[in-house]
Each structure stands twice: as C-alpha cells, then as structure tokens.
C-alpha cells in the first residue's frame, strides 16, 4: 500500500466511530500493535523532547531502502497515535515520506493532538520522522 492508500484506509476505519469513547478505545488498542523500539534505544538520545508523555523513536533503512520506524511511549493514547503514524510512514522510501501531507490526523478527528499546546509532542514526532527520512535520503544521495 502507498502512503496515500494507507491514510485512506485509516480514515475509513475511523469513520465507523460516532462516539469519541469508541474512537479512543480503538486508539488505545492500536497502541498495543506499535512496533516496539529495541530496549537499548530507549535512551535520551532517542527521546523526543517537548512531550508531556515520553516518546522514543528509532529508524533504520531496510535492504530495499525503506525506512522502518520503531517506537514506544509511556502514555497509551500517545502510543496509539505513534502507532498510526508508523502504520502510515513505515516501510516507505525516504522521498515518499518527505513528500507526504499527513492529512489523516485531521480527517479522523485527532487534529487537536497536533496543536503545540497539547504538549504531547506529536508535532515533534512528525518532524523527527521526517528528519530521519531526510537524513537517509541525504546519505543515499551521497553514495550515488
């Protein structure tokens, strides 16, 4: 699935909820599917700053040149949101990630989590994911 298709699928999945409690319950469930970061990376180096809840994010390039993200958080709602972001962005080429407009968060009614005042660091999280993608892209360009 492309990033666009993945976003679409999530928007569809969430459209069945008309009650916020169901939506958040599902988000909490999604958190349990989060591709976990290796314990050895749960250090300050991989900690995203500016969050009330702590988020650790790691990225590596697989053999096909796709970015693979792993993460963890100590808050379950944050975990669910990270899980969604990873679902959308993980397994794609750096360029694809950088070209993406992450519209799904707004469409599924989680836009409020993007506000900097929420201090859950979603904005920093997205930035950090893009930063990884950019770093991988620069590295592969340098090799060419």
């Amino acid at each position: 699935m492309t990033i666009q298709e993945q976003q679409k699928a999530i928007i569809e999945e969430f459209s069945i909820f008309d009650d916020w409690m169901d939506k958040y319950a599902y988000l909490i469930e999604l958190g349990k599917e989060l591709p976990m970061i290796d314990e050895k990376y749960k250090t300050n180096q991989y900690l995203i700053t500016g969050c009330q809840s702590r988020v650790w994010l790691f990225a590596e390039l697989d053999d096909e040149g796709k970015v693979v993200f792993t993460a963890d958080s100590d808050a379950v709602i944050t975990k669910g949101i990270v899980s969604l972001l990873i679902k959308v962005l993980s397994g794609h080429a750096p360029k694809e990630i950088l070209d993406t407009d992450l519209e799904f968060l707004e469409k599924i009614g989680l836009k409020e989590h993007l506000s900097p005042t929420r201090a859950n660091g979603l904005v920093s999280m997205v930035k950090q994911m893009q930063f990884y993608a950019r770093a991988f892209q620069l590295k592969s360009n340098a090799k060419k």
Partner: peptide
C-alpha cells in the same frame, strides 16, 4: 496510568 492519558480523556 499516565497523567496525560487521563487528562486527554
């Protein structure tokens, strides 16, 4: 339970 989760809900 994380404080942030409680506050959000």
């Amino acid at each position: 339970v994380h404080a942030y989760d409680i506050g959000t809900l």
